[in-house]
Design a protein around this nucleic acid. Sequence first.
RNA 1: GCGGGAAUAGCUCAAUGGCUAGAGCAUCAGCCUUACAAGCUGAGGGUUGCGGGUUCGAGUCCCGUUUCCCGCUCCA
Length: 883
Amino acid sequence: MAEILDKVYDPQKIEAKWYDYWEKSGLFHARADGASPSYCIVIPPPNITGSLHMGHALNNTLQDILIRWKRMLGYDALWMPGTDHAGIATQNVVERMLAAEGVNRHSLGREAFIDRVWQWKGESGGTIINQLKRLGCSCDWSRERFTMDAGLSRAVREVFVRLYEEGLIYKDDYIINWCPRCRTALADLEVEHDPHEGYLYYIKYPLVGKEGALTVATTRPETLLGDTAVAVHPEDKRYKAYHGAKVRLPVLGREIPVITDPYVSLEFGTGALKITPAHDLNDFEVARRHNLPAIKVIDEEGLMTRKAGKYRGMDRFGCREKIVKDLKSDGLLEKRERYHVPVGHCYRCRTVVEPLISKQWFVAVKTLAAAAIAAVQDGRTKLIPASWDNSYFDWMTNIRDWCISRQIWWGHRIPAWTCKDCGQVIVAREDPDKCPHCGGSGLVQETDVLDTWFSSALWPFSTLGWPEQTPELKLFYPTTVLVTAFDILFFWVARMMMMGLHFMGEVPFHEVYIHALVRDPEGQKMSKSKGNVIDPLDLMAAYGTDAFRFSLAAFAAMGRDIRLSEERISGYRNFANKVWNACRFTFMNLEDFDPAAAAPDLPLTVVEAWILSRLQQVTRETGEHLEVYDFDQAANALYQFIWHEFCDWYLELIKPQLNDKTDPAARRHCQEVLLRVLNAILRLLHPFMPFITEEIWQKLPGASGSIMAASYPREEADLVNPQAEAEMGLVMATITAIRNLRGEMNVPPASQVEVFLKSADPSSLVALERHRQSLMQLSRLKELHTNAADTPAAAAKAVVEQVEIFMPLAGVIDFAEEERRLAKEMEKISKELAQAQRKLANEDFLAKAPEEVVNKEKERLQSWSEKLAKLKTHRERIKGLMG
RNA sequence: GCGGGAAUAGCUCAAUGGCUAGAGCAUCAGCCUUACAAGCUGAGGGUUGCGGGUUCGAGUCCCGUUUCCCGCUCCA
């Protein structure tokens, strides 16, 4: 016996209880016993500092849909969860807390500081995990990992040591991007270039021993303090005379050479370029070619060094103003022009990045990148959509060595030691206590930590237990698919490809599904500074998690950004309510239903054959769409079927049988089929709307256990029934046509009318006769004449396929109104007819188009002209009646 | 600057080169029809950005053009 659902669908009430139930039942746990095929997704690990934003919500909803779907299909589905230690971001958070207490990390000391970060992580680091649970994510929490936990740290060290031993990790003096606020080096990728309103300054460098000066153009006059040359293009005729000359550096008076290098552009500025090797990447490379010294005039805090002479200790921007002033008073500033300067900012704190020469650790990525390129080229890993291939190749081809050392404390400390006695560098898996070269005990460990992405790059195998050869690693690597947004394609995906291929010998994932970015309704990127951030938790509270998830899936069209509109989410909330009420209706009609009792052996009615046939097709479509990550199409197919076929038609069509208590067997049979369809619908919908489907499933007669553990519907081909679909198509079209006539002729819904049907095709009438009750009920008829010998003249008329429909409206009908309506209808049809005629009159079309297309066109022509003829006859009759 | 998208109903988006270019929301009209007013039944709404071309046939393919978005960028 079925329990009756509450009258109102209340998402908050039903969503609260199921997550615990699932988790406690162990339903998220992958068995890893090799008994069924494996399916594995590793989660893009969110930062421990993070809280759930729209990007996470979309990303994880899609993953959960895939995982729940595959799990129901019988795969041993592992969704490997975890979090990322987010070195710089986390350190910033904790440092801010310390600042509020009036201390800083240096006064605290390294050990204590790290303890403090762990403490913070314990208290606040789980926020996002709880939010993922709120979203319904069915991750295998028993396997949850963290990039700083013991196992992953061991993997990091193993990778570092091996790469070092292979010569792929090295330490060198090089110019790197430095954030003076975070006081650490950054990788090229971690610098964001934004245009900045600035100036291009033209500065005179007086010639030594001659009259005159060379004028250089620069956006950063303060760096002239570190200039060690002025470069011109070797072919530049303007400067031929100055090759080998010397100029005097303004302000400081140092003499520096004029050199020639083809790097210099002839067109830009004056064609003379100041060279500051310590503070500009290009200058650094020019200087290497010419063996020029580098003079560091800006330090790690962004302050001028003692090499800057009288400017020492000034802030770099203050120094710029002062220098410009001094140049002006010396008469050496020729002019300045307004200019858009591309300025690099730290992606974590937005501070202007300072290029600095510094000793850092690098990964030599060329060979790793080549392997990662090959894997995508030969399809071992597929990017979906493939339009990302070119960006991937482009980036991978132009990649430069990866700076992996960070001058912060929170992270994996680089396992390198320097011997104070012999000066040798030791890189080791275990902390050494004496120098293996000289036996000395004065070992000093590297203070830097590794870039956070270094550990995330190992995520697909480190989380599965590597370097141990675990059963999980064997079963789930390579993982099936990685689901991510394109903004971390290079940061993360590219690096996982490199590391996975190098250490596992196989790609980390077979497919990478790259989904859209969620934008605000105006298409703007959501950001705190713009104030247009929509909090997913608010949406879940307002519309329910199921509606929210379904919206995200329905929005997730491939290769297109998502503009989130609340109106549509509320539309899907209505859909959830619709599902709820369809179930409520079903349950109300199952009060006397005993699933254990034997089902009567009755044949399917046409209506049942039709709905089961449609169900098969929707089942097939849903699977096909999910298989290729067309989440939106899968969601829409279900929405359309459930609302507009199951609810709008099927439930209406079976009401008479359900209400007919005189034939218990037929009623019981009807209940049986209804339950069967609803059961399948819930399972089809479950990956998208896990909570509401579970809530209803638990009350569904004959269902047991969690819907999570039920099987996902598969198409039953023998139930596909084109005849039933054709017949119901005619019935529904006829009902719609009658409703249409009523509407057009302004017949009040309450008043019942008579309808006459006529057709040259007797089988149509037989079919419609079979559905007499449905026709009467759904189009509100007083009487239906399907064998009308005489059709009333004073009637409104419509034509559906071969069937003519007459609705006599004696005393009600406005002949002029009907005449106008017919004229309009005929005009529409005439247009279609003309188009078909035009096509068929075209000899090229007849000769070149495929036969079936031509035949189709002929059929269309025929049916249009028949319909037109019928309407025309009728119109004449109406006209006759009008007098 | 280089590269990639996008442009279709008032809005957000669909549409293997071939049925009358479709949905949802919004609008309008009428309905509390015993699951649902978060609902039901209808209706209106389109020169597919613009200009060419290929084709029997173009929203779809090609060229040009305009606008918008997004990446990448070592000419100061």
